[in-house]
Design a protein around this nucleic acid. Structure first.
Lengths: 301, 301
DNA sequence: CCGAAATTTTGTCCTAGACAAATTATCCAT
DNA sequence: ATGGATAATTTGTCTAGGACAAAATTTCGG
């Protein structure tokens, strides 16, 4: 199998490292060291792309690029798994069961996973299913990906199948017609949608009128949509992977674009290290989100 | 409502125009003409971002940026709707009914839309539902967006609700365990997933073993996933919006990464202007995809 | 040992030039 | 006129190296 070289645009796509970063690393650290094609343009061998992916993965765990690049490849793979952020401790004996579910994905047996989850849903009911099964599973998948025991495509399969389960469950609920009306979406560059679906499930269970717009809405469009749908609340989700430095600016910009009477809620693992912002409600956990819903209803009789 | 200015990164996110393009337009055409902040960095007023979005929309219809930028804003909005590519002629009297469905979205009555579509699905059966309802609807939504009668968030709502319907329908099918095993996904930067879902519905109906990996898989990962899942066919989808020039290179790169025995199928509106490629099957229509499936089965007894 | 100040690291933005691929215009021969 | 080759334009992407601010780390003083 003869693997071709990658242009800088292809590497950006596949690694998530911007062209600027790729060039500045080359200048500063001497890595990556792409060949040049006939036009003098960078051409990255697959092997270097691979190493860049590994480095990116370790960076998402809190490591720093300068150190990583100075480290030999063998050591790098050893580093995987030793995340710098402490793991959440397993809640109880349930841990075993969750592990078994993940094993099904790992064995690439999607059908068995779906069936097992259907059973859990039936047994636990939607609310506990979301909070006690889906949320911890998602966390564990993230960890498994970080330590290399899950491939990216395993994560994709997990996400896709779980999304289906949630959407199906939501579809069986009676259509919420009561206030508040909640618009659920995410900003451009934020494609993770599982958290949004979990929130929707919980809100819909409480009878709220949910408007799911999917992911990646431009800011100005979110503002328009909020007006057009006369929404009471705009709920956004930020994953851990989302660039931290942008979140605060983004939320404040959005706040100014939204009608003043609309509340702005932000949730997801991405906002946990954030300080408070004017006019924005930060809701790192589902419990807080549900409490906020109750509060809203108390304040709007 | 005091609308803030946008940094160049925010404009790239919201318009889909790369930083390079934004800068080179400014140099060449004098537009956009952002202010500069205290650090000498570009700061785009919301009004210019708006105009850039309009221009991008017209470009997707086949107009050229040089002309568009030279044109006054009033004329621009007049241009919308006069697409340069001819519209597909409406099939029959059904057109009315599809229009009615779109009107429900336009009135922001998601619940009514879902209910109407459920009825259609029950009446038509999944195969005809996909080919005669969902596919033409998707096309009409694209047209409505181009001529400005649909907002972006209308399109998002349509997409989200329709995705739910399809996934729900797929979930009710018996799990396909027979060959071929088909891996369905899309490349990075290609987030449209409706076409993929329609294809999955049709393939699953034929009893194929579908592995849905969602959108945005890096090339090398697609290769790995194909090996790990021992897939017979890798099916990709390209929307019209996907940059044409990249598709051919991308497909050929992917071909080299895939196991030789795995077939590579590409579908979607994005590949219709493409010429044939070695080792890749181009399937612009669902009928051709179904025919290809029959062919594959005939060749693999 | 803790908190403030100095230092290093790192990502993003800047300018301005170059070039190839795609598109459109021109021209010649049939 | 019409088809087809050639020339001119348009357009996106790439290159180089410099600059700077925010974040993270280290050093220093109490």
């Amino acid at each position: 199998m003869n693997i071709p070289d990658f242009g800088i645009a292809a590497v950006e796509r596949d690694t998530g490292l911007s062209k600027d970063v790729l060039r500045v690393w080359e200048r500063r650290y001497g890595f990556p060291a792409p060949c040049r094609d006939a036009n003098g343009e960078r051409s990255y061998p697959a092997e270097q792309v691979e190493r860049l992916r590994l480095i990116k993965r370790l960076m998402d765990q809190g490591h720093r690029p300068g150190k990583l690049i100075a480290t030999a490849t063998e050591e790098l793979s050893g580093l995987a798994g030793r995340s710098l952020v402490p793991r959440a401790a397993g809640e109880n004996g349930e841990v075993e069961q969750l592990g078994a579910l993940l094993a099904l994905i790992k064995q690439r047996d999607g059908a068995a996973y779906q069936q097992a989850m259907q059973q859990r849903l039936a047994r636990q009911g939607l609310q506990r299913f979301v909070q006690d099964s889906v949320a911890p599973l998602t966390r564990r998948v993230g960890e498994a990906w970080e330590d290399g025991s899950f491939e990216i495509f395993d994560e994709h399969l997990f996400t896709e199948l779980t999304k289906r389960l949630l959407r199906q469950a939501i579809a069986t609920l009676p259509v919420g017609r009561s206030r508040p009306r909640i618009l659920l979406t995410s900003v451009p560059d934020e494609q993770h949608v599982l958290g949004l679906l979990m929130a929707e499930a919980l809100f819909a269970l409480e009878g709220a009128d949910c408007i799911p717009l999917g992911a990646q809405m431009p800011l100005l469009e979110i503002g328009r949509a909020a007006s057009a749908h006369r929404t009471d609340i705009v709920a956004l989700s930020f994953s851990v992977a989302f660039p931290q430095r942008q979140i605060a600016v983004l939320l404040q910009q959005l706040r100014m674009v939204l009608p003043p009477e609309a509340a702005l809620w932000a949730g997801g693992a991405g906002i946990q290290r954030l300080v408070k912002l004017d006019g924005v409600d930060l809701l790192p956990t589902f419990d807080m989100a549900l409490a906020a819903l109750a509060d809203w209803r108390a304040a709007h009789p």
